[in-house]
Write a protein that binds this DNA or RNA. Structure first.
Lengths: 199, 199, 199, 199
DNA sequence: CATGAATGAGCCTTCATTCAT
DNA sequence: GATGAATGAAGGCTCATTCAT
């Protein structure tokens, strides 16, 4: 991929995240990377296409990161603490997309939501990623359960959904309610979950 | 409040939710309630003010609903199931704001996020509501705990945050990933939580 | 019709005629009548609509004039000379649309051609006008023929088409080839025709 | 002339005819012949020059055809029928320029009109062609007249202009009013003219 | 020869805003 | 209270043109 093209994608992603689709103007995006508006049209046929490609670019990275975070660890403790190490996640995302998602997690999600409505292929893609992460989590949990680490009466499918929800929700609430400190909250939640599910 | 003014607020809220701040034009809002654009300026000094007042209007309703949902019930079961009866929540919100939030929950949250960035008073207000709900939940949990319904080693503060996160996260995921059916998911999650926290 | 609206129509018609659809910019049209581009959108929803309405406005006038020119006269001579009095026709059109069609007859016709391709309703309208004029001419010729003024072996339907073609063609050629003086050419052609068709 | 250059001219002519000067973009022209926009600038210094050269290219062909159509035939009948065989004319033009002028005769003429306004040399050229055709026609008619084939009281100069006008006008009307079938109309008009001018 | 990157001006359109009525 | 006319800025997009390669 051309250097300029990647610069456009990255900067556009930032502007879209910060100002949403309508609020981000090609003028600003172009100016901020030192080219003209017309230059963008050399690489993308329309604002819509630029938006779409930004989201795909983002999803590619996101999928990689997510799947890495949901890797089987040697112990249940390690696994759960890993899931809730929000600060690490945000650090990786920041390095990847140059976006401070701690404060813009909403916008990030909203962007996906807008994209899903605009582009059917993204809908499928996003659902697929959620599915994959959910399934992977479920499998890992089931493995721990079969090893006797998790209470017998807990359904791993539901548990997986609960964990995902809690993670998304916590990041979201931390964005809206600044009195919640995301890093310590993550650790404490992990600790609490372990108490609840460990046999 | 004047009848016309409330009509404007309600319709504007719908348009803002469906199209976000930039995407909602005074023209469309005005046309859809049968007045002219200029007429809106009788009641609001600017689009920004209209937006702000919309959000306040929404927050007022939201606060009332939330506080009602987090009422102490006779049993822990009833309380938890109540928290996770998403369909009821959405029904109430739909009746109140004429918005289908099941599909637009994102937009709804995003709107708040945009508002918070634009208007500092809303930031305080939102944090306050979350705080209040959190505190109320915490108190109720603590009461159940003191009655011996909840495991001794669980911290009610953390538990409260976990429940809030799970609720927000579940509604959010259901919006993005349509393969998750929000109603049954809610029931199952409630059931699972009870298994985890009940003594 | 609002005064401003008619001013826009008239000036737009001029610009469209002189520069064709693509070449006429709303900017120039607006500026030349002392309003802003946005002001045009108060009266017309799009450049396309403005164009369409211009053509309808023009066709309305054209139809009136044409039908007046093809009125039965007392003698065949008067009738034919009337048809070929191009200078009168151009004077009326100039007064009506403030366009010098003597030099822009092409553009005028071309404009119609573009309009016909863009708007199906105009296609029907234009064909209808030609038809009406043709039929009227035919009827008048037939009347003269039955009174013994026109040679028996001439077909009035064909004759009508020949006259129309000659008129259109002459105006067109005069526009392209400036060595043809339209007024005297008209008179001479009328004279020649009379020699050819009179019994 | 380079092969590529002629390909550009031919395709540009088509685009100019179909979309007029403003509507034809170098981008489309270039793409349709499989080169880049920049490539066109190797052969032509500007869009204006390309346009000018297209028109000259077209006029060259047109002059040749026209002069061939206005050749003295053995009989007056053959000559007149030849002039009005529109279908043959269109067939030759189609083969020459790959343009269906039956439906685009207008655009074709309009293009000339635009060109004449833009480039003074074309104005002279076009007038010259019309003149030449007119003179040639006139000479031929005069020859027939001296042979006693045409009525004595008809002026061959005027007659020539009438024929040219009728031909241009008929092709033009057929373009605007699709209910006129150009081929049969041509034959019938020729027949009628013969009745009118034959001694 | 020809490409591809990039520019800058201009276009149509939308929109928040103002204001006389 | 409310309308309707009008503005001016901005936005997305197209396009002729230039130029290094």
């Amino acid at each position: 991929m051309s250097d300029t093209k990647e610069k456009i994608l990255l900067k556009a992603l930032l502007y879209f995240t910060e100002n949403d689709y309508e609020g981000a103007s090609l003028n600003n995006i172009a100016k901020s990377i030192g080219i003209t508006k017309g230059g963008i049209y050399h690489y993308f046929q329309s604002k819509d296409e630029l938006f779409h490609d930004c989201l795909v670019y983002m999803l590619d990275g996101l999928e990689r990161i997510s799947m890495e975070m949901v890797k089987p660890d040697s112990t249940l403790e390690e696994f759960v603490y890993g899931l809730f190490s929000f600060d690490e996640l945000f650090a990786v995302l920041a390095a990847m997309f140059q976006i401070d998602l701690l404060n813009d997690y909403f916008n990030f999600l909203y962007l996906m939501s807008v994209g899903i409505k605009k582009f059917p292929d993204l809908k499928i893609r996003v659902a697929g990623i959620y599915q994959a992460i959910g399934n992977e989590t479920e499998d890992i949990l089931r493995a721990f359960k079969s090893r006797g680490n998790i209470k017998d009466d807990l359904d791993c499918t539901i548990l997986s959904l609960q964990l995902s929800s809690m993670i998304e929700g916590a990041m979201l609430i931390a964005g809206l309610n600044k009195s919640v400190e995301i890093k310590t909250a993550g650790t404490e939640m992990a600790e609490s979950i372990l108490k609840m599910i460990k046999k």
